[in-house]
Design a protein around this nucleic acid. Sequence first.
RNA 1: GCCGGGGUGGCGGAAUUGGUAGACGCGCACGACUCAAAAUCGUGUAUCGCAAGGUGUGAGGGUUCGAGUCCCUCUCCCGGCACCA
Length: 951
Amino acid sequence: MKPYDHKKIEKKWQQYWARHKIYTTPDTAPGKDNFYLLVEFPYPSGNLHVGHWYAFAVPDILARKMRMEGKNVLYPIGFDAFGLPAENAAIKHGLNPRTWTEKNMTYMTKQIQSMGASFDWSRKVSTIDPAYYKWTQWLFLQLYKKGLAYQKETAVNWCPKDKTVLANEQVVNGRCERCDSEIVQKQMLQWNVKITDYANCLIDDLDTLDWPEQIKESQRNWIGRSEGAEIDFKIARSEESVTVFTTRADTLFGCTYLVLAPEHPFVIAALKKDGPFAGITNADEVGKYVASADKKTELERQESREKTGIELKGVKAINPANGEAIPVWVADYVIGSYGTGAIMAVPAHDERDFEFAKKFDLPIRHVIAPRVVDERNPHRPGKDVVFRKTILGIVRDPATNKFLCLRWKKHPWTTFVVGGVEEGESWVEAARREIHEETGYTNLKLVRSLGGPIYTEFFAAHKDVNRIALGTSVLFELDANTTREEVRADETAAHEVVWLDPLELTWDRMTHAELDIVLSRIHSAGSAYTGDGILADSGEFTGSTAEEARRSLTQRYGRSKTTYRLRDWIVSRQRYWGVPIPIIHCASCGTIPVAEKDLPVRLPAVRDYLPDGSGRSPLAKAKTFVNVKCPKCKGKAQRETDTLDTFVDSSWYFLRYADPKNKTRFADTKKLANWMPVDLYSGGAEHTTMHLLYSRFWHKALYDLKLVRESEPYTHRMNRSIILGPDGQKMSKSRGNVIDPDEVVRTLGADTVRMYLAFIGPYNEVSSYPWNPDGVVGVRRFLERVWRAQEYVGAKNVPELEVPLNKTIKKVGEDIAAMKFNTAIAQLMMFLNDIEEYKAVEKKQWAAFLKLLAPFSPHMAEELWSLSGKKKSIHLEGWPEYDEAKTRDATITIAVQINGKTRGEARVAAGASGEAMEAAAKQSVAQRLDGKEIVRTVAVPGRLVNFVVKG
RNA sequence: GCCGGGGUGGCGGAAUUGGUAGACGCGCACGACUCAAAAUCGUGUAUCGCAAGGUGUGAGGGUUCGAGUCCCUCUCCCGGCACCA
């Protein structure tokens, strides 16, 4: 037997497959269903890394298996060749980006081909090909004509190092996603596309997709839908009003001031003594504040959360619910770009407003009472419901840190001082009165009211009524002025005064839930209650639930409104290496799209493509490119010089694969119908809220333009894991832990690398796996054992292998379909172990085994196939079938348990009856059962027998 | 803080969806071959214990004849969002 020479074998078969074009995929194949397996196309960065292998060589296993099963599988590849990384590298090496990129593509194509993946290279696309970007431009113009692409001057993210604008999605924690520079905000005129028009269906349609929950949830978070209301606040002495967005319309009666973002148009106007707030008396100070807020970078805003702000003096707004005139503030905790850029502040029920109100001493009004139901004493049906305002008088002795309590003589409980609030009495007055009446203490020092009322429902047995108590607690302390007077005899008869630690309270007249709230309020300096509950002090709405009130108050004082965190996608980039935006600016005719016949607008070769930081693309310096005739008036006009974000290129590349050479359309409708939607899209988790979201939006826009037939591009999506260095850290040159796949392929072979990566862990779960050099060698060892097993082939009769083989065919098929390549390989290893054990395998059994191996190690399988005398490629063979009956052993081992603990084993026939199993089981644990009474026997066919015994 | 995912040997990971926990591989130990080493092959390898026998799937509780799997409480790790009203 010749030794296993992977170099020779892999080269030989890669050439053979290319020569015979066995992976060229027809648009349709008679009698075969189409299956579209997509992987994210790579940047031509110059070198293939292990991640590329993991991304391309492992899904290839599925592609190959499905082909053998009789599917017409499209597994295409291309290059996402425009963009910053390529351009920056080109600048660094002093080359033209095109030369550099094309050289990389040539080199990487060879590298990818060394994987032995079944890509259909005849469908290769490259985004820098004018025949491709012609259609990128065309599609952009379709969006433009539909009003989905527009130019707007807004505050944008500017990367000072890359000297270009970035989309929100490309800014991570205030830094550039690519170069990690701190992003600054700039006011610039930019091309946007209206992804926000699709925010709703981008969220809703997630429900229709068979995607991992994690990806869906990330997209939902990113889009950030929030349902609430817009409410108009009239401005005093003005006809105009400020519109706020809130999700808590139920707290409207608790709104004690308004806050506008520093960027709010009314604020900007007020600084110029204009607009509804023209009457402010402190414009200078407000101006200073706005300027300082403006200067803050995104990072500074995130780092310092200290509340700052300034009141607009001399103006008031009117709370529409209670008609109260309330102050108006400007603060940068309100963001101009979200909602309406203005909020109604409800400090009692919003943590940020609370913090702000504390700092600037603004009033806090409680309007939502937490609802507590006494579960031991619930309302009884048929009894009257009596509503009562109650007060809880809490007195702390600072010397001992104990609390004044009453121990009741007739009841087994201890309580704080509790009583009703009388007509016209304030909470504090009521509390003082009750404490005085019941304990004699007077002249107590008021500490504070404890954060608004609590709504408690219970059955008051002593009064035989269902009680609803709206209880407010007030905290006092003993101090030098405090005196104690005589208490009435009936009070002393009812209870005695004790000083207790709150933990010692045994309070049966109140729930623990309520007590918890009160205690936490005693111990914290106060906080906002942001939960739901029952409305208090809210006029006619008092008593309704927060949920009802959100609806009714919205209806009365505002209107329902849904807002999104998602911003429109800024697609213009001030860089050279991208698709020119096909627009002409004419001084008299305005913005004119380039006519279809003039597409593509070619990216000109220029000498100087370095960005100069002026905020204009290097293309602006290419005079012959810029200066054109206006298509409309034939006057002087200029081309748009910004280029498109590369995420535009990649938003439709999967459509081009269906018809990559079409000259008259981005892809033929019929050919699109053959392949779309993508059946399975495998890619990296880093694209979840970028490429994956952009391309869903783009596709939906094309769907509305009737250019594609489905509203979602990808039926099934899976995120791939990450391969780490051998040290368990992310591979990086500086750490010196980078594995060069070319080198491993040289020493161990492509088949080994493919199979190792498939074996490293389940492919359909997101995780990270360290590259284990010993593990790769282990896989190589397996392949060499396969190679040596040739010597056993040709045995005449090996029935012992029949069940293992059928099991293996079943398991490998199922596991590949589920993307659990690791367990499929484990099963192949087990079968090889069996062959080695018997030192024999029939030709037919060997052939089936090779077919199972073919998707994983296509070269070796092909070589062994050909060595066994076959002429046709193994990859054109059918997937082996199994006989269900032969996947089960004739005799099986069952577990024997006593009281659920495994105590022995028994051998029984596969189809053994319960009685037969029991009998065999009983025998195997006879000693342990001796003298014990079997109370119950559980027999699970094919699994186990469990004896439940006593004694 | 909110939302999503997860925690199993020394390591990567298995476990037919409630039925013998640790498949398969790596590593390690011992043995065979060898002057020796490598390669290869064989045996063993959750843990405590000489053994009988215990104990074990992040922690604690519950349901069940039986729990890695279901329920409750907590904890830690990963990911998304976060001054978003």
